[in-house]
Design a protein around this nucleic acid. Structure first.
Lengths: 193, 193
DNA sequence: CATGTATTTCAGAAATTACTGAAATGTCTA
DNA sequence: TAGACATTTCAGTAATTTCTGAAATACATG
């Protein structure tokens, strides 16, 4: 691995974290190399820096492209593909959230809606059915909120994030709060009688 | 697998999604079974429902406990361990975010801070060093915001989420917005001269 | 303390995922 | 279009993860 100590430390860390982030070690390392590099790199340069096979780098770059995490560019008089990460870290964060939402949340939301449509509901399934509905409603609230916030330009977003929970203070207590309906276990229902 | 169609569909989905969520299929399925069940289950009951080995369930439950995603309870005159998921879905969401933050973000934030402390910085590392600092600052902004929002009681949180970006309207344009400092590539620096 | 029951540990098997080197494909240009 | 170069595909291998059944451990109670 042909890297300065700083690069190497960072790259190895991203490699180790890769599996927790849902990518593999090599993909994590490739991303790290591109992230730290001032300007685009081609596949062969990544191979030299990481000491992994050319085909492995090819596959890894394909996966990073599928995640929209790298940009493909070209240099004049050079037909090789060059790759970079965006300069703007907020763009990276937005992409990460978007892609993870797409992979980790959207399929489940779809499934939950599908399950809610299935009726009639057997008595033994009543609790489960309620639970599914409640989970669907909560995920929908969160994804709608995300979708709304994502429309803000970065400076506004940073402003809101910096305020944190202090935004409360800017909000007059307009009207009452409508809490999410909670499913109750049959035990709780009995207790209410 | 001894489950009603609704349960089975949900459980199989959670199993498939497991790998994307950083847990394995069985752990996902165990969680799904507990989530849908009205009341606690013991390990043997989970074995019957899923048709996997007792030891596999034992390991899976251990992992779910490590994630704080299940609660251990006991029934009178029964020394077996019983497990449930919390009734309150918001508690589940908070736990999920907390645990993923702990596993996927905190180690990297620690590493980034460690790397920032290492000096002197070689000329070739200047860009990388800036990039590390910028990433650290951004993650810190996000985790501080999260930590702040997490202090809110659920009803307040739901209120804010429901408002979404409309909170903007409640905020007077007090003072100027301070944007995050962005690192510049050496090319961009040249362009500024 | 012996027995019955619950849970955990663990070695090996099975399944899945990652990686390599070689071959195939694509593409530019002389 | 032949040759040079870039990238992708793919079969085989390596590494890792998951799963099982059996043995070990834990512990309450007759």
């Amino acid at each position: 691995m042909q890297l300065s100590p700083l690069h190497q430390d960072f790259v190895l860390h991203f490699g180790e974290m890769g599996s927790r982030w849902g990518i593999n070690r090599t993909v994590g390392q490739i991303y790290a190399v591109l992230f730290l590099n001032d300007g685009p790199l081609n596949a062969e340069q990544v191979v030299e820096k990481l000491g992994v096979s050319r085909s492995n780098v090819s596959t890894g770059l394909k996966e990073l492209q599928a995640w929209n995490l790298v940009r493909l560019t070209h240099l004049p008089n050079d037909r090789r593909d060059y790759f970079t990460t965006p300069d703007d870290l907020w763009e990276i964060v937005r992409t990460l959230i978007e892609e993870r939402k797409k992979r980790e949340i959207d399929p489940t939301l779809t499934k939950l809606r599908e399950l809610q449509l299935q009726s009639p509901v057997a008595a033994e399934d009543q609790y489960a059915h309620d639970r599914v509905a409640e989970l669907g409603a909560l995920i929908e609230l969160l994804t709608d909120w995300y979708s709304d916030m994502n429309k803000l330009e970065t400076e506004r977003l940073v402003q809101l994030l910096t305020l944190g929970s202090k935004v409360q203070k800017f909000i007059e207590t307009t009207g009452k709060i409508v809490p999410l309906r909670r499913s109750l276990s049959s035990k709780q229902k009995k207790d209410m009688l």
